[in-house]
């Protein structure tokens, strides 16, 4: 795809919505934008109905900056809070039925690879902890066992926020939630351990306390998924409504939780490690050659 295919004929340009024109003139397409440039370019996502001060919204916004080629990306999601924002982005969004997100993404990725042989197309699954660890669990695990080449991003708010605060598999043990009035009886699921066992090429655990790191991690995961195999990011994105965090304290909570139990963690498989080190060397060489 080139920028020409999304540009309107000159006569019709003025009739397009202002937002569309802005995306063509100052948008994030066909170039890698940086987190430090935020505010100086038109972002691909805006004006969504998610709650004020939601950390998940911040994380999703940073994902859109980190994606290596927005114009060649398809995002796949399912029911949950996240889709309220993701569906407003200027990137194709496929809404899987609850439970089959990673199966839909598998089909999409395989189909795109057959249709576009010379152009890498990225498929990114972005859904909540309920959508991936509970209801979509079987599809997630099997896509990993089959070594499907796409990225899965879990927006882990540790609760079913969209349906009013029921506990999920990713909720901490002992938390009092709706459907768990005496406190959740079971441990939080170890999705990172499961990913490692299933042979995922790159796994990361992250909180949105460092925007540049979020964007870099997403970029790394998508690039490794293109060449090596499945990648997984588990992100802490607190639900300030169900956990009653006052919005000015959302980032303080993220920092506390990060320090306590959600510190930055990444794991490479041997193959992914070799690939990433070599591609980093190549990028450095190209940058030097440019200078």
């Amino acid at each position: 795809m080139s920028l020409k295919t999304i540009q309107a004929a000159p006569g019709f340009q003025d009739y397009l919505p202002k937002e569309y024109q802005d995306l063509l003139e100052d948008g994030p397409f066909f170039q890698q934008r940086k987190v430090s440039e935020l505010g100086s370019f038109k972002e691909a996502i805006e004006e969504h109905p998610m709650c004020a001060g939601c950390a998940m919204t911040l994380f999703i916004r940073l994902v859109y900056v980190g994606l290596p080629s927005l114009e060649h990306t398809v995002i796949c999601g399912t029911a949950g809070c996240g889709r309220l924002a993701i569906s407003q982005g200027a990137v194709p969004f496929v809404y899987g039925n609850y439970g089959d997100t990673n199966a839909v993404a598998t089909g999409l990725k395989r189909g795109l690879d057959i249709r576009f042989k010379d152009q890498p197309k990225d498929v990114v699954v972005m859904a909540g902890d309920g959508g991936l660890a509970d209801i979509g669990f079987h599809a997630v695990m099997h896509s990993w066992f089959r070594k499907e080449k796409f990225t899965t991003i879990m927006l882990d708010n540790e609760v079913y926020g969209n349906t009013g605060g029921q506990d999920s598999g990713m909720t901490q043990k002992g938390m009092v939630m709706k459907m768990a009035p005496t406190g959740k009886k079971f441990e939080k699921m170890d999705m990172l351990g499961l990913a490692k066992t299933a042979g995922v090429a790159y796994t990361a655990r992250i909180s949105p306390t460092n925007p540049t790191r979020v964007a870099n991690t997403v970029r790394k995961a998508v690039l490794i998924a293109r060449e090596v195999g499945p990648t997984f990011i588990q992100a802490y994105t607190s639900c300030n409504i169900e956990y009653a965090i006052p919005t000015p304290k959302v980032m303080d909570d993220a920092r506390e939780v990060e320090k306590d139990r959600y510190g930055y963690l990444e794991y490479f498989s041997d193959e992914a490690k070799t690939y990433w080190e070599e591609s980093e060397k190549e990028r450095k060489r190209l940058r030097k050659a440019e200078k």
Partner: peptide, 30 residues
């Protein structure tokens, strides 16, 4: 970088200052 809303806190390169799109701000105080 930390505003949860896209295209809400923008940056004016000429004046070297951030500014707010008041119609997008949800008032979260982050």
């Amino acid at each position: 970088q930390f505003c949860p809303e896209g295209n809400t806190i923008l940056y004016d390169e000429t004046r070297g200052t951030a500014y707010v799109a008041v119609d997008r701000c949800k008032g979260c105080e982050i």
